[in-house]
Design a protein around this nucleic acid. Structure first.
Lengths: 238, 238
DNA sequence: CGGAGTATTGAGGCCTTTCAACTTAAGTGG
DNA sequence: CCACTTAAGTTGAAAGGCCTCAATACTCCG
């Protein structure tokens, strides 16, 4: 069931045999979520971590008079891993579309770390990649205009979905609305709409129903000046 | 010498006696840096971590055609702690004004973790707080206007400096330029200047030479709608 | 005193927002 | 199966915040 998580860890960190075994033995309960159902809210104290199995989640916070989406999450992600050491949520964790999550008690994770200490590094690194994504978005939101922000968003999603085998010839299921994209990119809904039209006009994005296609990823990544290094363990040395 | 780091850890995580002893035994070399001298550059592989002893550092990246400051660092911070598991830098690390840093080999940190495994959690948590700050700034940059962004910046700095005993009756040394603040907040230099004037006009900020004073922190925090919970281990439960 | 970097000011322009109306898509009930 | 309802997407136009350009005033330092 943790296949997506394991695919992620395999792609991003690499896993040894023993580690795989221990990971597979992680106790967990499975739960389905409806569209816009929230898992955790700002201020909640967490005693479990959530592994996204299928669907999408996002983290969001009310900032000023807006709803800001802080991050999007794809299957294999553990969006609340940090609650292991910072148990009080400073934002909400919400499902977009129908999704399925596995819930793993903090205690089970700690027990796993005792049994297989090398996994501490693997999971620590997971939180570091999560941080790298936020850092990247600090740069995006601070320095890029609407077109480039949205392009960055889709480039990043494509790579992350690819890691876990959910990208098929440039296409993927995508249950978000344009308003969601706007609040992730710090844009109004209206301007998000116009920005998406610009991407469509350039032949870089197709979006029908809940299916998004990136017909020309190379061109999209060129437009966004996208580099995926921050999404994985730096493997390739100079 | 690690006094500031220890003050931070004490304020943010709490430390046991044995942990203190082990921390104090950390081998390190001390080094002085000039204004705008860089410690690490994007693409570099790191084998050490840097503890800021005095002065300021920032992390920055070129995004599009801009120089974006990703984060500011005060004494006690370890701005490149994440290189322990993600050794390739995805941004630069630079001194602002004269500063002093301690350099600790990764190997020494790992050895310390072996000797005192509880410190793994302490340092992991440090990286999680670093991440929480980035997350907070994703919200700030995505949702706030210039005045509120800059107000947030000074509120945050005040708290972080306070943790390590570098805030004296609302005043602190501050070697950054207005242009720096602009590139941290995603604003042009000109508009940053006007925004700072607005804060001064409201009696919320004084800035003479390299000294900043926040004459009315309560009012500043009210304006920014600032809540410092993200900067420390969530201690206060409901 | 001169020079360089920093801060400040004015003005025009652009990107993005807001407001408001309208269209399309999807789902419900009679 | 179609009218009705609601959410999501689209469009136009005006307003606003922030940017850029460009010139001027400081401030510090050799």
């Amino acid at each position: 069931m943790h296949q997506r998580l394991i695919a992620r860890l395999q792609a991003v960190s690499g896993l040894a045999q023993e580690e795989l075994a221990v990971l597979n033995a992680l106790p967990h309960t499975v739960r389905s979520l409806d569209d816009r159902e929230s898992i955790l809210k700002e201020g909640d104290g967490a005693f479990n971590c959530v592994v996204l199995i299928s669907g999408f989640l996002y983290r969001r916070k009310i900032v000023g008079d807006r709803n800001q989406i802080l991050s999007l999450h794809v299957p294999g992600d553990i969006p609340d891993l940090m609650t292991l050491y910072l148990p009080t949520m400073d934002h909400d964790l919400i499902s977009v579309g129908q999704s399925v999550v596995g819930t793993v008690p903090h205690a089970a994770l700690r027990a796993m770390f005792d049994r297989q200490p090398s996994l501490v590094h693997t999971f620590w690194r997971e939180t570091l990649i999560d941080a790298a994504i936020f850092r990247h978005w600090v740069g995006n939101l601070g320095a890029l205009d609407a077109l480039h922000r949205v392009a960055q968003l889709f480039c990043e999603l494509a790579v992350r979905l690819e890691f876990v085998g959910l990208l098929n010839r440039g296409s993927f299921a995508f249950p978000l609305t344009q308003a969601d994209i706007g609040s992730a990119c710090g844009l109004s809904t209206v301007h998000t709409n116009r920005t998406l039209q610009a991407l469509r006009r350039r032949g870089l994005l197709e979006w029908r129903g809940e299916m998004v296609t990136l017909p020309n990823r190379g061109a999209l990544e060129a437009l966004a000046d996208f580099n995926a290094d921050y999404l994985q363990r730096s493997s390739k040395s100079a």
